[in-house]
């Protein structure tokens, strides 16, 4: 071992978790799987319809109660196009966008499919016009956020 050799010890950082989605998110996912619809919950104080559904409003620190469906159409608010592959993440190009679905007071993030991506700048200009979108479900929804994505109308 030379006097200047610096030792590196290989390590791993893998842990197992069971994330509880909770009643609200479970119902939200169930609605995705069984009824192919997107649900929000309304704050008892500020009355905003919060999407995706959740048990409480963090701005008011109050519980939500009523459940309401939103969409299936909405307006794109902002987006990005991922053009570079990062390790462990899906293959580009990927369009990710926040969309406020009709009836909702908050925006929901998901992927945007069905856009011609051969010219990134052209695709960006199209998305920059804040187009109307609709939710599109996969053939066999599993009750995950990836059961649906957005497509331009």
């Amino acid at each position: 071992m030379s006097e200047s050799e610096l030792i590196e010890i290989a390590g791993q950082w893998n842990f197992n978790y069971n994330y509880f989605a909770g009643e609200s998110a479970s119902r939200f996912f169930r609605e995705l799987r069984e009824n192919q619809r997107i649900m929000g919950t309304r704050c008892t104080k500020c009355r905003r319809l919060l999407v995706p559904a959740r048990a409480f409003c963090d701005a008011c620190m109050e519980r939500t109660n009523e459940w309401e469906a939103v969409g299936p159409e909405g307006t794109l608010d902002t987006f990005t196009i991922i053009t570079t592959q990062f390790p462990g993440l899906p293959k580009p190009p990927i369009v990710m966008a926040y969309v406020t679905l009709d009836g909702a007071d908050t925006a929901l993030i998901n992927l945007v499919h069905g856009l011609d991506m051969s010219d990134i700048d052209k695709a960006a200009r199209r998305l920059n016009s804040l187009p109307r979108v609709r939710t599109k479900f996969i053939d066999e929804p599993k009750g995950r956020i990836t059961d649906f994505s957005f497509e331009l109308i």
Binding site: Y19, A21, G22, A25, P52, T78, F79, T80, I81, I82, F86, L89, P90, I94, M96, A97, Y98, I109, N110, L111, A124, L127, N128, R144, I145, T146
Partner: peptide, 19 residues
């Protein structure tokens, strides 16, 4: 629960705002 399935990273978060 709601977001981990997407390629959200510090870079894409910044890109969402830049656009």
């Amino acid at each position: 629960v709601y977001e981990k399935d997407f390629p959200l990273t510090t870079i894409t978060m910044a890109a969402l705002r830049a656009s």
